[in-house]
Amino acid sequence: MRRAAAGLLFVTALVLLPASAAFADCTSDASLLAGQTRCFNSGAELTEYVSSAEGAAYSYRLSQLCSDLGDSGVCDNPRACVSGKDPGTLYSVLRRPVTSPNADWEAFAVVCLIAGEEPRFEVITWQRVFEVMKTLEWPEADLAIQPVGGKTLVNFETNFFTTTTEPSTQTVRLLGREVQIEATPVSYTWHWGDGSDAYETDNPGAEHVDGVKHQVFHVYTDADVTERPSVDVTYRGRYKVEDEPWRPIHETLTVTGTPVRLEVVTARVHLVGGVSHSSPPASRR
């Protein structure tokens, strides 16, 4: 039912309407889900049209088309096309008169853009969004260590985990449009601080429970030293342009964690209720 509803929302916006000049002979009944686009224009043809006297009277907005939104509502399967001999991606073209900046956008065309043509039409791509994502502040991972109190025992299984597991969302303006960026933790890199190799996991570890094996732990072999363990969190992102579907960002972003003080002692230490947390301010990498 959700899939059908998504189709209804977008069918109107993707119908290729007859136009003069370069678009006069190209019409289509393309829909978002059916994938029946039989006719589309090239980026070069769109450039020629928007540069004409008729085309210059309008503002344009391009949105990537999807083969199928799926049950998740995420556009992770862009509609492919070929322009000339070059592979490309299909975009819907909306327009409105320059003299009516508050008017609704109307469906105008479907265009096949090849690699490198998106910037010409100020298309919001995942690459553009990722560049913005890298400039934003995303949470560091909150590092928890057991035993509590900033001390552990030499040759003892020290338990580590983080409570940073939920997505974070920020909204920005990009090319005049509102864009939501969501970052979800997908992996963690644990640095023990004693010179041993870092350890990467896709789970955040867990609080100590008697009789249950620790998921993320480290054994320190040198006594009477102070180490500086930390954990980095790697985010996978997705973005949403106004009322369009969510789209994936195909690169990850790692936020470096702030080291915390941990003394390795020879005295006996017990794992008891309670967790030692470090909550540094947000930073970026």
Rank of each mutant, 00 (worst) to 15 (best):
F121C: 10
E106R: 09
V98Y: 11
P139I: 05
E106Q: 10
V132Q: 14
L153S: 01
W105D: 07
A109V: 08
W105C: 07
L153Y: 00
F160G: 03
A103R: 12
A141P: 07
K151G: 00
R95P: 01
D104C: 06
F130P: 02
I145M: 02
V148M: 04
T152A: 08
E106P: 02
M133V: 12
E140K: 10
F121K: 11
C112K: 08
E117A: 09
A144L: 02
I124F: 03
A144N: 04
A107F: 06
T163G: 02
W138A: 07
L136C: 08
T162P: 07
L113M: 09
T135L: 11
R96H: 09
Q146F: 03
V110I: 15
P97K: 15
W138P: 05
N102D: 15
T99C: 07
L136A: 12
W126H: 07
F161S: 05
F156Y: 11
T125V: 13
T125I: 13
E131H: 12
A109G: 10
N159T: 12
L153T: 06
F130K: 15
W105Y: 13
K151S: 01
E117M: 11
G149W: 00
E140N: 04
P139D: 08
K134D: 11
E122N: 13
T152S: 08
G149P: 01
D142N: 10
F160H: 05
A144R: 04
A109R: 14
N155E: 06
P147R: 05
I145G: 01
G116A: 13
A103I: 14
I114V: 15
A141H: 07
C112M: 06
T125G: 14
R95A: 10
I114R: 13
V98H: 09
L136M: 14
K134R: 15
M133L: 14
V123I: 13
V154F: 01
L94K: 13
I114E: 11
V123E: 14
A109D: 15
F161W: 08
A115Y: 10
V129L: 05
V154R: 04
V98W: 09
P139H: 05
